[in-house]
Design a protein around this nucleic acid. Structure first.
Lengths: 204, 204
DNA sequence: ACCTGGCCATGACACCTGTCACGGCCGGGC
DNA sequence: GCCCGGCCGTGACAGGTGTCATGGCCAGGT
């Protein structure tokens, strides 16, 4: 019997996934949580064999939650189940120690198989996404450029960003300019869009 | 036996919802589609009693798909099931002729109830969202302002927008300025964010 | 017929942005 | 040690952006 934990902020999806997985004879959902910061406590309490984590969650994003789980409870495998197939997410998830990565528009029946493979120690990765991730590679943005672009993503002015990150306005403009150049964009908004689409930037 | 159609672009979610609803004795999923433009053909072919539609779908958005179904197959009730609780979506959904509107983070067990209520001719609306929708009201943006803001949402420059909508650059700037004023924003990017959050703008 | 309000356009102006050149600081690798 | 590359800052400049005033056109309501 494989014990599962489900983490997804949408109660309907969470419940539906539970219903889907309960249909399998060898799977058992032992815990459900709605927030990223509830994952580790729930894992510690219920000791599941596999944790299915969404990337986008309130409180704490799924990637950070995965890191926590891998560090504190190595016996629990982590399978990321995400809405968006951003190439960068895959890389970050693997670096975080996740054992698998599936997109939410993969066929439903494959999920149970993925869970079993992960539980048996194998790694599960969406093939199409893996290919894209290899060609696409990692983020070209430096850490600071990412910070600045992230701060710019809610539409604030340069002065706002400078205040938020405690930087000079000139520096902010430079980082933005670099980010714009590296993303091939012509506007900061375009740069944000490109970075988010590639998974170099976690939205919000 | 209530016959259901499911429309959601994420196969995993779609399959999971199907599993969840099949558990009910009086519900039967007769069709599943992944795209908005597949909804009407499937409805015509399978004649479901209730259609569950996601708002965000490729091909055709859920609201337009709802309009199609209501116009062509009045016997089929429409229940919108969406990820985001944007107040504006509710209003648009009701104007499109939908019989219900539930958010994906409502408890899973309520979905079957909502389906039954809708099937019996009642209207189902998320209470919290209804309240917000009433206070929030409709979009303050004119049609043209919405168009321009929408065109601006992918980060293009004023010249790009003018070319795309075949307008003068000055006119574009005026519409943008108006939209910025009405949304209480200080940047076009901020205005886009506000408009999207309130459901005045359909993303992408 | 009149007025209102949305849409389109022009022109002008202050301000913000994106870019470039330049310099300084620091940690890591040959 | 030296050089490289990321990080931070300054200053300056062309061009884009947001705002305002002004005016014409047209549909709908009184």
């Amino acid at each position: 019997m494989i014990r599962l934990l489900l983490a997804d902020d949408q109660a309907l999806v969470r419940g539906a996934l539970a219903a889907l997985l309960q249909l399998e004879d060898d799977l058992e959902v032992v815990a459900e949580v709605a927030r990223g910061d509830e994952v580790l406590p729930a894992v510690l309490e219920h000791r599941p064999d596999v944790a299915l984590l969404d990337v986008e969650m309130p409180g704490l994003d799924g990637l950070s939650a995965a890191r926590e789980v891998v560090a504190r409870v190595p016996a629990c495998r982590v399978l990321m189940v995400t809405t968006f197939g951003r190439p960068g997410y895959l890389k970050q998830a693997m670096e975080a120690g996740a054992s698998g990565f599936v997109v939410k528009d993969t066929p439903a029946r494959q999920l149970a198989d993925a869970v079993r493979r992960v539980h048996s120690g194998l790694r599960v990765v969406d093939p199409a996404l893996a290919a894209e991730s290899l060609t696409q590679g990692a983020s070209p943005l430096t850490e600071r450029e990412t910070d600045v672009l992230r701060a710019a993503s809610d539409g604030g002015t340069v002065a706002d960003i400078a205040r938020e990150l405690v930087l000079s306005e000139g520096t902010v403009r430079n980082h933005l300019s670099n980010a714009i150049g590296k993303t091939g964009a012509r506007t900061r908004a375009e740069a944000v869009r490109v970075a988010v689409d590639n998974g170099w930037l976690v939205p919000r």
